[in-house]
C-alpha cells in the first residue's frame, strides 16, 4: 500500500487497493482514504476521482463507491461543492482526528499483539524504536 508521488496524474489520484473479501468493500475504501489523508498523500482540498472513476479503477461496484463517498461526506472527510468534483477536506481538525484515529488503531493492534505474547512494555518499545528506524531507511532506499 505504498503510494508514489509520480502516480498523481493531472490532479487525479490513481489507486490500487488489495481488498479482503470479508470486510465490506465500502469500509475498506474509507479506510484507504483515511490512510492516504493521514499520511498526507491526499492533500487537503485535492480533487478525488468521481464515483464512477473510483469504481472503475478499483474494479468495485459503482454502488459501493457511491456508498463509500456518502459515508466519507457524512464524516467530513470529503466535500462536494455544487457540480464540481469532490475534494479532500481542508478541515485540519478532521485530518487531525483521522490521523489520531489511525495511530490509535495501530497502537491498539500493537498492544493486543504484544500482550498476547506477554512481552514487557519496555522491551517491546526498545525493539519498536530500533526496527522502526531500520524500516524507514530501507523504504527510502527503495524509493
Amino acid at each position: 500500500m505504498v503510494r508514489n508521488e509520480s502516480l498523481r496524474k493531472l490532479g487525479v489520484v490513481t489507486m490500487n487497493i488489495k481488498f479482503n473479501n470479508r470486510d465490506p468493500v465500502y469500509v475498506q475504501v474509507i479506510q484507504h482514504f483515511k490512510e492516504q489523508i493521514a499520511t498526507g498523500l491526499f492533500e487537503p482540498g485535492q480533487e478525488i476521482p468521481s464515483r464512477r472513476e473510483l469504481a472503475n479503477q478499483l474494479k468495485i461496484n459503482p454502488n459501493t463507491a457511491q456508498r463509500a463517498y456518502k459515508e466519507m461526506e457524512e464524516q467530513g472527510l470529503i466535500f462536494t461543492e455544487r457540480n464540481l468534483p469532490s475534494r479532500i477536506t481542508r478541515d485540519e481538525a478532521v485530518i487531525k482526528t483521522v490521523r489520531e484515529e489511525l495511530i490509535l488503531e495501530a497502537v491498539n493492534t500493537f498492544i493486543a499483539s504484544v500482550q498476547s505474547i506477554n512481552v514487557p512494555l519496555d522491551e517491546a518499545l526498545d525493539l519498536v524504536k530500533d526496527n522502526f528506524d531500520k524500516a524507514k531507511d530501507g523504504q527510502e532506499g527503495d524509493a
Partner: peptide, 14 residues
C-alpha cells in the same frame, strides 16, 4: 454482498 460482509463478516464464498 455488502450487507453480509458488514453484518456477518463473511465473504460471498463463505
Amino acid at each position: 454482498a455488502e450487507e453480509v460482509r458488514e453484518t456477518e463478516g463473511k465473504s460471498i464464498i463463505d
